[in-house]
């Protein structure tokens, strides 16, 4: 029987590949929601001393990541009637290949960081790095603004994974700080999205180029 943490992390890595290959926004949102749930329950299996407070915090994280943000984004899509396609800059197959290369590279690179992170969990640091870089990749390789917001959330998931290895108290302070940022960020982006939509009648971010001086 595998360790539950590594199982979860393997699923997270797979979700990265799925997200790279999915072309429709609703599907992508679901993948990210799943990823958020998986990432936020990782601390429950890590053998930390679980206090009631800790469990409440973890559940709150789960609610925001797994339900709050995805629902909010789905509603945003409906409200501004956005194209359901993610409009890739890099094609889906190329993206998938890049994802695979990325995972391999992350596993190769992670021991070199020499962090006191994830002792005993081989996949923890590689998946964290993968999530961060994959989030960046989505930000760069998708024109649709919602897809870019999702990339940003994926990056944040990666940062959260690094945070799980800290001691429980510090972790919650850090995590709630980050979550607050993300929530604010997502809301601001949703507002900006509406404005972009109003101005350009589309949320294709390449149109922003026309704003250049």
């Amino acid at each position: 029987m595998m360790d539950p943490v590594d199982t979860l992390l393997a699923m997270v890595l797979l979700s990265v590949l799925i997200s790279f290959g999915s072309s429709r926004l609703p599907a992508l949102i679901k993948v990210i929601a799943f990823q958020g749930v998986a990432v936020s329950i990782v601390p429950l299996f890590m053998g930390h001393e679980m206090t009631w407070g800790g469990i409440v915090f973890t559940l709150a994280t789960l609610m925001i990541r797994g339900i709050g943000i995805p629902v909010y984004l789905s509603r945003a899509i409906k409200k501004v009637a956005i194209h359901r396609e993610v409009e890739p800059v890099v094609g889906y197959h190329a993206s998938l290949l890049a994802g695979l290369v990325l995972i391999v590279a992350a596993i190769y690179v992670s021991p070199k960081f020499n962090l006191p992170v994830g002792k005993g969990y081989i996949l923890l640091l590689p998946s964290a790095i993968t999530l961060i870089v994959a989030g960046m990749f989505l930000l760069m390789a998708r024109r649709n603004a919602i897809a870019m917001v999702l990339g940003y959330i994926m990056m944040e998931n990666g940062i959260y994974l690094v945070g799980t290895t800290f001691s429980m108290r510090a972790q919650h302070i850090v995590e709630f700080g980050i979550l607050l940022d993300v929530l604010a960020g997502v809301m601001i982006m949703a507002i900006i999205l509406q404005n972009i939509k109003k101005t350009f009648n589309d949320v294709n971010t390449t149109l922003l180029r026309t704003l250049k001086e």
């Binding site: 960046m136 930000l139 760069m140 390789a141 971010t205 390449t206 922003l208 180029r209 250049k212």
Partner: peptide, 12 residues
Amino acid sequence: HGDIHLYIGYIL
């Protein structure tokens, strides 16, 4: 150049 994707590339 105004392209948001390349700006993110700069950050990376």
